[in-house]
Write a protein that binds this DNA or RNA. Structure first.
Lengths: 245, 245
DNA sequence: CGACATATTGATCGACTTCAAGTGTAGTGG
DNA sequence: CCACTACACTTGAAGTCGATCAATATGTCG
C-alpha cells in the first residue's frame, strides 16, 4: 500500500484547489469517505447501466470512462487521475451512461451517496464545489470535442499531453516536466478516437522534433512552449485558479 | 413575439422533466427569471473569457457553444434548444471557456446568478435539479465524443438527428416525426467536426435510403428504426425519465 | 433582376485506417 | 541463465474516408 499515505484527505485536496475550505468543511469531508478499494489494470470499476449507491474518488493510478459500440470499437470519454471523481454525476443521473475501467492498477475511495446527499441538504458551499468538479469535467469534455473535431492528430496528441501534465502538476505528481503515465498507445488511441498506428506516428513526430520523450511509463516534456504551440493550448478550461465559488 | 406564449415558466418545464417539483419550488422558479432578450441568427449571446453575472435559458430558437482555433477553424461543442441553459456552468466556472452563438433567431431569459446562488443556499432539491441539468450536458458531450471518435460520418449524422429529435420531442416541438431545424449544413459540419461537403453527402445518403427528409428548415424522420440502427443510438444518456433526484 | 448565401456535384489530394510483419522487452518456468 | 510467451511498440504498404478545391445550381430577399 505504498504511496497511499497522504497528509490530507484527497477530497479536501481536490476541492480546495478551486476555493478555500473552512475548518468545519474540512472536518465534514474527512468523514465522507467510506472504504478504500484496489483494482488491477483492466478491471472494470463501474459498469455501464448500473445504478451506483456510492461515488468513487481516485487515490492513485489512472482510469477512464468508456463506451463500447455495437461493432466492438471502444471510445474513452474521460481520463481520471489522483483526486478526480469518476462518477460523481451518478448521484444525479442515477443510471451510469458509461463504464469506467482501470487503465493502471489503482486505488479508489468510496463515497456513499447518502453522505453526499446530506451535504447537498446542509452544506451549500461544499455542494457548489462538488457541482463545480462535475462542471470542470464537462469543460474537459468540450476541449476533447474541439481537439477531435478540428485538430490534427499531432495537435490533438499534444493537447492531451498538455492537459495531463497540468492536471498531474495540480496534484503534485510531476517531477519538473516529467511524469508517470503508464497507458498504452492503444489506450491513447481510444482517447483520441484514432488508430494505434497513427498515435504511434504522432508520438514519433513529437519525439523526433525533440518536444517529448516517452520511455516506458515515463513522459518528459522537453519543450513545453512548442508543445503548447502545436496543441494551440489554453489552460483556462481546467479552472486551476482559486476563487470564491 | 409569436410563439413565446407559454403556460408555464420554461425553467419549470425544464426541471420538471427529470423530477417532480413542489408548488413552493415552482413559485420560486417563477421569480427567478429577470428579463427576456432577443438575438438574431449569427449574434454572439455569450462571449468566451467573459465573466457572466447571469445565466441564459433558451425560450425559442437554436444556439450553440463554440470554440475558434488559431487557424480560424470552428468547432461547436453543444447545441441548445428551447428549455436548455446555455451557460448555467458559468455560475461556478466564473470564466466562460467558450462562446455561445445564435444559430437561428432566438429568445433567451436571463437568470441572475445571485438568485441562483440564493437557491443553492436555501433549496437543496432545486439545486440538485440545476446540477442535474449541467450533468446531462456533460452526458451529451460524452455522446458527441463517442460519435466523433468511433462512428462513421453517416452514423454520427444519424446520431445527432436522433438526439435532436428526442430533445425536441421532450419540449413538444415535434410534430410526429417532423421538426423545425433551421441550421445550415455548414453549422452541422461544425458540430460534427467534418467538412460541409461531407455533411451534404451523409445527408444525401440518408435521403436516398428514404430514412430522412430535410427540406428547408423542416426535418422529417421517415424511418426512425433504421435511423436509430445506423446511429447505434441509445437514449439513456438524455435522462428523459422522471425520478427522485 | 442582381446579390448573396446555401446546397450540390465532380475531381483530386491527403490524412488516417487497416492489414501484416517484424522488433523489442518483461515475465515465467525449466 | 536461457527458452518461451505475451504484450506493446514499430514499420511498411495498400486502401479508404473524408478534406479541399472549384464549379455549378438553387434559393431567397431586397
Amino acid at each position: 500500500m505504498a504511496g497511499l499515505v497522504q497528509t490530507k484527505n484527497p477530497l479536501v485536496l481536490n476541492l480546495s484547489r478551486h476555493d478555500s475550505l473552512s475548518a468545519e468543511e474540512e472536518r465534514i469531508l474527512e468523514g465522507v469517505v467510506d472504504r478504500i478499494d484496489s483494482f488491477r489494470a483492466g478491471d472494470d470499476i463501474v459498469l455501464e447501466d448500473s445504478r451506483p449507491s456510492e461515488s468513487c474518488l481516485m487515490l492513485s493510478g489512472f482510469s477512464a470512462r468508456y463506451h463500447i459500440l455495437h461493432d466492438g470499437k471502444r471510445q474513452l470519454t474521460a481520463l481520471h487521475l489522483t483526486g478526480d471523481f469518476l462518477d460523481l454525476h451518478s448521484l444525479l443521473l442515477k443510471v451510469m451512461d458509461h463504464g469506467v475501467t482501470a487503465l493502471t492498477d489503482c486505488q479508489i475511495a468510496r463515497v456513499p451517496h447518502d453522505r453526499l446527499r446530506k451535504i447537498t441538504e446542509e452544506q451549500p458551499h461544499l455542494t457548489r464545489l462538488l457541482w463545480l468538479s462535475t462542471v470542470i469535467d464537462a469543460a474537459i469534455h468540450r476541449a476533447w470535442i474541439v481537439a477531435m473535431g478540428r485538430r490534427s492528430a499531432v495537435g490533438q496528441m499534444a493537447h492531451l499531453l498538455c492537459e495531463v501534465f497540468l492536471r498531474l502538476e495540480a496534484v503534485e505528481l510531476t517531477d519538473g516536466y516529467s511524469f508517470d503515465f503508464s497507458v498504452t498507445q492503444g489506450e491513447v488511441a481510444d482517447m483520441l478516437g484514432r488508430s494505434t498506428v497513427h498515435v504511434n506516428r504522432a508520438l514519433q513526430f513529437l519525439r523526433q522534433k525533440e518536444i517529448l520523450r516517452w520511455r516506458g511509463p515515463k513522459v518528459t516534456i522537453e519543450d513545453w512552449d512548442r508543445l503548447q504551440a502545436i496543441a494551440d493550448f489554453d489552460p483556462t478550461y481546467l479552472s486551476l485558479r482559486k476563487e470564491a465559488r
